[in-house]
Structure formats: C-alpha cells, structure tokens
Design a protein around this nucleic acid. Sequence first.
DNA 1: TGGTTTCATTGACATAAGTCAATAGATTGG
DNA 2: CCAATCTATTGACTTATGTCAATGAAACCA
Lengths: 227, 227
Amino acid sequence: MEKILKIISLIPLFQNVREGELKKIRAIAVDKFYNKGRTVFSEGDKGDGFYMVADGKVKIYKVSMDGKEQILHIYGPGSPFGEVAVFAGKNFPANAETLLKSHLLFFPRAAFVELISNNPSLSLNMLAMLSMRLRQFTIQVENLSLKEVPGRLASYLIYLSREQGVEDSVSLPLSKGQLASLLGTIPETLSRILAKMSARSLIAVDGREIKLLDMPGLEDLAENGKL
Amino acid sequence: MEKILKIISLIPLFQNVREGELKKIRAIAVDKFYNKGRTVFSEGDKGDGFYMVADGKVKIYKVSMDGKEQILHIYGPGSPFGEVAVFAGKNFPANAETLLKSHLLFFPRAAFVELISNNPSLSLNMLAMLSMRLRQFTIQVENLSLKEVPGRLASYLIYLSREQGVEDSVSLPLSKGQLASLLGTIPETLSRILAKMSARSLIAVDGREIKLLDMPGLEDLAENGKL
DNA sequence: TGGTTTCATTGACATAAGTCAATAGATTGG
DNA sequence: CCAATCTATTGACTTATGTCAATGAAACCA
C-alpha cells in the first residue's frame, strides 16, 4: 500500500471508512512540503480546503496588534487543521506556521464535501473531530480566564506526562518561548514561574526535560491555581 | 403547521432539509420547560443528547474552584447547545443554566445520529454549526489572551451594535455582573471601566442602555486594547 | 572553530486587574 | 408600599503579570 494511504488509514478521522473511499480520499489530497518556520496560511485568507499533517509539526496561532502571540493548537502527524474555513464557508480564523520541516496534505473543499456527503461514517468522524476541538477550547478558555499562569503550566505538564505516557518526567515539545505563547504569557514570566516551582521542589528543570517531583502538588496547583 | 415544527424549519441547522425529514426531527425532539435560573446540565454529566432553545435564554459557563464564573456562550431561540457531548461521545464540557423561563427541545443522541447518517444536508449543516462555534472560540481566546478588559468590552459593544442593527446605541442583553463574567472579569472591574469610558466620552451608560458616542474611538480600543 | 544570532534568565519597575469592605440603587414579594 | 434581597458602584489596598534592560547560555553556520 502506498505510504500516505497507509498513514491516512490509521487516522481517527478516517476510521470505519471503506477501502474504496479511502482511495478516493487519497486521490483528492494534494501533497505540500514546507520548510521549518513557513506560513501555511494567514488569518483572513480565503479557505478553499483544509490541511492534514502527514509529517512534521504545525502551530495555529493569533497575533495582537502589538505583536504578542497566542498559540491555539500544536498539531503533529494525523491531525487535520483549517477545517473551519471549509465548513463555515469563510476564511481562516487564525494563522498556521510549520514548526519543523513538514509534509502536509491539502484537501480541496469541493471534493471533500462531495466525499462527506456520500459517506456517513466520514461525516460522523468529522463531527467527532470538531467536537473534540470545541472541548479543547472550553478548557483553554477556562485556563486563560480562571487560572493563573502557574496553574496553567501545571495543567500542561500533567497533560504532557499523560500524553507521553511517563509518570514523573516530561520532555517539552516546544521551546520555552513558544510554551509561554501557548500558555498565554511571555517568556520572562514563564522563566520566573519555572524557577519558583523548582524552588518549591515541584519540578526540576533541565533544558527541555522536566522532572515532575511532586505530582499531588502539581495537581493541586492545576486545580486551585495558587502557587 | 405545528408551532414548534415551524420554528424548527426556520433554524439554520435545519435548512435544506426535506419536509419529511423535518417531521422526523420534530418527532424525536422532547419538549422541556425550565424556570429562570435552572440548571439544564452540569459539567461532567453524561450527555445522551443535545438541546436547542425554542424560547428563552441559556448561558453556558465554567466555574473555578474558588467560584469565579466564565461564560462561554449565551444562546437564544434557534441555537443548539450541548452537541459536543453527542458527537465526541463523552460528557458535557461545561454547565448550562437558563437565564429566563425557557422552552428547550432535547434531541436524544441515538435517534439524531440515525437522522444525520441518512441526511447529508443535515450533517453538513451541523458541521457548519460546529465550525462557527470554533471560530467564535478563537475570538474568545484572542480576547482573553491578547486584549485587556477595556478592549474586550469595546469589542463586545461593537458586536452588539451590529447584532442589534443600531449604529449608535445598544441594549445589554445581560446584567452587568453576567457581562463581567462573559468578558472574563469581575463586576468591580467592569464598573470602573464603564466609568472610565464614560469619562472619556466613548460611551454614555444608563442602566442597560449604552450610547456609543465615539465609534472610531471604540474600534481603536477594540483593536489596540489601550484605554 | 569561532563568532553571530537566537533563546533563556534575572533584576528593577510599572500597571492592570483582583480583593475586601462599605454604601447606594434597584428590584421583588409579602 | 415598604422591607428585604439582589445588583451596582466606589475607595483603599494587594498582587500577578507585563515592560524594559542587561547578561548569560545555547544553537547555528560559514
């Protein structure tokens, strides 16, 4: 089986889709290659399709007038992005940029809508996908509005440790500056908080490797937000 | 035509759906009536269906440990809510409470999924609906993270004036306390900012009626966030 | 390798927004 | 219609986080 077709077949979005349909999906996908740090699309661009990461890493973000950046998502292999423009029939609501050399698949709107119209499994998968995104956003809003930065950081570390399947240590998939942007703060503040959490023996930081020394303490911090 | 059926037929979610299907949709909907201030569902509740406002008003919100509330959405007639639980197959990610005496329609998951599986128009409408929600969330995150409270308030006033179709005045659909919660702040702060904006002659406040005295000034504030 | 650029840390300081408390206004039900 | 409750405003104060600037560490590449 072609490599990309195999990748596609393993993606949640395309589960329970008949083999024949998978081939059609592959047929409409256009391969796109980007170097690190490249803009895939910008906020306001007309969206005539959506993307999926085949390989690499992409950040979706907003920027304010004075240049502060807020990361909305980081997507790796298997994650689609930019679907909002396809289904809401408007333009992209945020910016997308590669964080690594990346191989993306582009799905043109018309062809994909055609596929989805004839494939209930696919449309239910897409509904599930968007629903998960909405759920993530409710968490992000909660974090930004109801937690202070230490609480957000603690939540993120716990999330990472689950995702990476390691109990007591995590490896940041992002530079500290980018992590600050993901958490809705700035590098200076993040630095100070990492220092304070280290002083409290909650964590031990070594570059991008962070040991989680006091899981209960971190969980409490994530819940109550007070350091 | 039955009153509810007529309401359903006018809703964006059910556009371009055949008459026969509309009847089926109505058939699976369960009427629910709530007084003002009633909990419809709570965060974490198992979601075996979603709701739609037939009449009244509902707020969707999160609460922190120490009791601070963040409103995610306010929905009026025609808006569905709670779909995330249906399609992501989990529990509700937030709380829902009526702000007025309300008449809601409840759509049980299994029956609705059945309908959507056999109706491409309906599933595309639902995808569009969720996509619009995602778009709104990107704006909410942007507001919370990249704008200060005065900027958020200015954005909201401009949004309201567009929605209400009036150029130079708006009527708050919410108490000031609830507005504070929607903007991600507290009543005291909102009060002070309203006072400051009045002093600057950007607006004039009279209870829930707000005159927009300086639209360019408000737009600038919404963009750049500096008061 | 060495030098340049980017990234991270730290200090001194400024400020937006939250907390606590008191009061005033508005709304509601008996 | 008045008391009781809820809602909004204002003041004095605290605090978390942002800003500006300097320095140190790490990564990159020519």
